[in-house]
């Protein structure tokens, strides 16, 4: 019998133990979201519990232009990380250069949204994938054809097996994209640091926060909670006649014409232009819109009335809104392309 030195045996054992440790990219164990202070637990649908393997696959799909018919548009084409996952356009440009009809919404904290799209027609992060993928002005593709295209790539097949224990399919594609998007959490703004970490905040922003939450401006009656939205549908009197019917497209109810989901204000200074159609370029103009009291559409929220804000108050509101930018969120490598 050959006698191995004891240190060699220990070294071999150590190697064996380390090699058994899972590769973080292939980990099938549940992935715990690192939630910022003040954030509630995120609802995750049964059957799509977060794992690193699912998130990794979802991120790859998010940046894959082969998901569009002409191979030119990825999810990330209209949801750029440096713009808090918006695209800086009034309305997005889709496959074959076609112009869409909506402003791309931010994906920050999208996992908390009870419904997706500006009219709320997407009922989950998983099912909403069909919307942009098949819209003729966005990716202009077909789910079946997209799956058939991507399943030809062995790396996607292997990742699908690893993440969902099945071959690449519409189920895998939609679930993985949902998993990745649930990790897009933003809660480290200057205002968060002020609230939860004792950081110093500009006094104008503090005054703006008081105004924002107070009776005079009443912004927080809709832009409430940790995500600065109550997810309700509101007609804010942007127009006296709407070409985009908003919530009424889904509800088929005339009383919903011109109503759109209240957007989160996190990173709002990074996500210009604004409104469902990108018709407002600057935050100052939004403040002016609310101070004016809207165009008086029949469905306009009656709480939207002239506010009588002073120049200083408008500047304070602007400072507060700018303090909601999360610069870590727009630079985290785990959210960006490989």
């Amino acid at each position: 019998m050959i006698a191995f030195p004891r240190y060699i045996i220990l070294w071999v054992l150590a190697c064996l133990v380390l090699s058994c440790e899972s590769d973080p990219c292939n980990d099938a164990t549940v992935y715990e979201l690192d939630l910022p202070a003040g954030f509630p637990a995120m609802p995750v649908p049964e059957g799509n519990e977060l794992t690193q393997a699912r998130i990794t696959l979802g991120k790859q799909l998010f940046y894959d232009k082969r998901l569009s018919r002409d191979g030119q548009i990825a999810c990330a084409s209209c949801h750029l990380q440096e713009l808090a996952f918006t695209d800086g356009e009034a309305v997005s440009i889709g496959a074959q250069g076609r112009t869409g009809f909506r402003n791309a919404p931010s994906l920050a904290n999208v996992g908390y949204h009870p419904y997706l799209f500006r009219e709320g027609g997407g009922i989950s992060l998983e099912t909403q994938v069909l919307g942009p993928l098949e819209d003729s002005t966005e990716m202009a593709f077909n789910m079946l054809e997209a799956v058939n295209r991507l399943k030809e790539f062995p790396e996607y097949q292997a990742q699908a097996e690893q993440a969902y224990d099945q071959e690449f399919s519409a189920f895998v594609l939609t679930r993985a994209l949902g998993a990745f998007q649930r990790t897009l959490i933003s809660g480290e703004s200057a205002y968060d640091q002020y609230l939860y970490a004792g950081a110093v905040l500009d006094s104008a922003a503090i005054r703006g926060a008081i105004l924002f939450n107070g009776d005079k401006a009443q912004c927080s009656s809709c832009h409430s909670g940790f995500n600065y939205t109550d997810y309700s549908f509101q007609n804010i009197g942007l127009y006296d006649e709407y070409s985009d019917l908003g919530r009424a497209r889904v509800s088929l109810d005339l009383a919903d014409i011109g109503k759109f989901k209240v957007p989160s204000l996190r990173n709002v200074a990074l996500t210009a232009p604004y409104m469902h159609d990108g018709s407002i370029q600057r935050l100052e103009q939004i403040i002016e819109h609310y101070d004016h009291g809207g165009q008086g559409h029949i469905n306009q929220n009656p709480a939207i009335v002239p506010l009588g804000l002073s120049t200083d108050e408008k500047a304070d509101l602007l400072a507060f809104l700018e303090s909601l930018s999360d610069l870590n969120f727009i630079s985290k490598p785990e959210f960006g392309p490989e």
Binding site: G120, N142, S169, F171, R175
Partner: peptide, 27 residues
């Protein structure tokens, strides 16, 4: 009607079709 086509495996009629037979929203 308000379920998810991705929950049906192809070639089931309720799975994703080409041309599509499902709106990408709640309808």
């Amino acid at each position: 009607n308000h379920g998810d086509p991705a929950n049906w495996t192809s070639p089931h009629p309720l799975s994703s079709q080409s041309p599509s037979m499902y709106w990408g929203w709640d309808n």
